[in-house]
Amino acid sequence: MPFADEVRPVAVSDYRVSWPEEFGQLADRLRGVVGHHAVAIDHVGSTSVPGLAAKDCVDVQIRVLALEPLVELLTDAGFRLRPEAWNRAEVSAGVTCPKLVFAPPVGERATNVHVRLHDGPNARYALLFRDYLRAHDDVRDAWGAFKKRLSATVSDIFDYGQIKAPATEVLMAGAEAWVASGGGFGFGGTQH
Rank of each mutant, 00 (worst) to 15 (best):
M1G: 14
E6S: 01
R8Y: 02
V10F: 03
V12S: 14
D14M: 11
D14A: 15
V17A: 14
V17C: 11
W19M: 04
E21H: 07
E22S: 04
G24T: 10
D28T: 15
R31N: 08
G32R: 15
V33W: 02
A40H: 06
A40F: 08
I41T: 06
G45R: 07
S48P: 03
G51L: 11
A53M: 08
A54T: 08
D56G: 03
D56W: 01
V58R: 01
I62Q: 09
R63C: 09
V64W: 11
L65I: 13
A66L: 13
L67A: 10
E68H: 13
E68T: 11
L74D: 03
A77H: 01
R80G: 03
R82W: 11
E90F: 03
A93S: 09
V95R: 07
V95Q: 06
K99Y: 04
P104S: 05
E108Q: 11
R109F: 08
R109N: 10
R109A: 09
R109H: 06
R109V: 07
N112P: 01
N112T: 02
V113T: 01
H114L: 01
D119L: 10
P121E: 04
R124E: 00
Y125K: 00
A126L: 00
L127I: 02
F129S: 01
D131L: 06
D138V: 12
R140G: 05
A145Y: 12
F146P: 11
K147G: 08
K148D: 08
R149Q: 15
S151L: 05
A152Y: 03
D156T: 04
I157F: 11
D159S: 13
Y160C: 10
I163Y: 09
P166N: 14
A167L: 14
T168A: 15
E169K: 15
L171Q: 10
L171V: 05
A175Q: 07
E176A: 10
E176D: 14
W178N: 08
W178I: 06
A180H: 07
S181M: 10
G182L: 01
G182A: 05
T190N: 15
Q191T: 11
